[in-house]
Amino acid sequence: MKLIGSTTSHYVRKVRVVMAEKKLDYTFIQENVWAADTTIQQSNPLGKVPCLLMEDGGAMFDSRVIVEYLDTLTPVGKLIPANGRERAEVKCWEALADGVIDAAILVRLEKTLRAGDMQSQDWMDRQMGKVSAGLKAMSSGLGDAPFCSGNHLTLADVSVACALGWLTFRFPEIEWRGEYPNLAKLFDKLSERASFKDTLPQQS
């Protein structure tokens, strides 16, 4: 398998961490989807990463779809419960973490792609409100538990930790550590895993 992605993307990192935890072999192909010569649409018509290229030539895109597929490939490091309330809970954690990053990315794009006099502060405030509410919900949902869902690592933890890592990378001014020490504790614990150490977000 080949994974097309960027070392700065939260969504790509989530897939890379899952692949590492599942001990799956793949080739990582870095792609800048904003570059004039990007070829990403040859694999994903939406022009986004991550995109997983299969051995048979097929392509799969959207991080949520990809990680769900990857978790079925081997029983090693099972990250998503098979069914029922437990499965829905893990997927809700993933949706919450992705939603926080969705909102934060909109703010980043507003700041980087629009001239200052064209930027909407109301729009950015609205999105940052979602980020704040999402972080609060993560902290409340985690409480004093060692993991987000159940008593072992799941996709919920991977998603939350990748989201917190991206916020630290792109929005260091957000002081989530001081406000939510339980999230900081979870983040620091997961950051010691090889899957997270090897996929730190960085400018390529």
Rank of each mutant, 00 (worst) to 15 (best):
A36C: 04
S63V: 06
E86A: 15
Q119A: 14
A137M: 09
T38Q: 05
E55V: 07
K130P: 01
M138A: 10
K197Y: 03
E179I: 10
S204Q: 12
F147R: 06
V90T: 09
A156M: 08
V17T: 13
C92L: 14
R170S: 09
S43W: 01
T168Y: 00
E94L: 11
G150T: 03
W166N: 08
A163Q: 02
A95P: 01
E86V: 04
S139H: 06
R16C: 08
T27N: 07
G116C: 04
Q30A: 07
R64L: 09
G84W: 03
A59L: 03
A59M: 12
D188W: 01
I101G: 13
A103E: 10
Y180F: 15
N44P: 01
P172T: 15
A103Q: 11
C92Y: 00
K23Q: 15
A115Y: 02
V65F: 04
R126I: 07
K197D: 03
I80D: 04
D62F: 01
L153Y: 04
S149D: 01
L73I: 02
R114T: 06
A156H: 01
S195F: 02
V76S: 09
D188E: 10
V17W: 00
V33Y: 03
A97I: 13
G129D: 06
N151I: 02
K23R: 15
S159L: 05
C51I: 09
D102H: 11
V33R: 03
R126P: 00
G57K: 11
K111F: 01
E192W: 00
P81W: 07
R193A: 13
S139F: 01
L46G: 09
L135W: 02
I80R: 05
E55D: 14
N83P: 00
P81N: 11
N32T: 05
D125F: 00
Q203W: 03
E89W: 01
S191M: 09
L190R: 07
K23N: 14
V67I: 13
E55C: 05
S139G: 08
V18C: 13
R85M: 10
M1E: 10
L200Q: 11
D117M: 07
E110Y: 04
L167C: 06
Y11W: 08
K189E: 07
A82V: 09
K130T: 09
G77E: 04
E94W: 02
P75E: 13
E173A: 15
T7S: 06
S191T: 13
P75H: 12
V67N: 05
R193G: 13
M138P: 01
E94H: 13
G165L: 02
K78V: 06
T27F: 00
N83R: 13
Y11H: 15
P45R: 08
P181D: 14
W123A: 15
L135Q: 06
Q127F: 02
K22A: 10
V65I: 11
A133H: 08
D117L: 05
D71N: 03
D25N: 10
Q202S: 14
W176T: 14
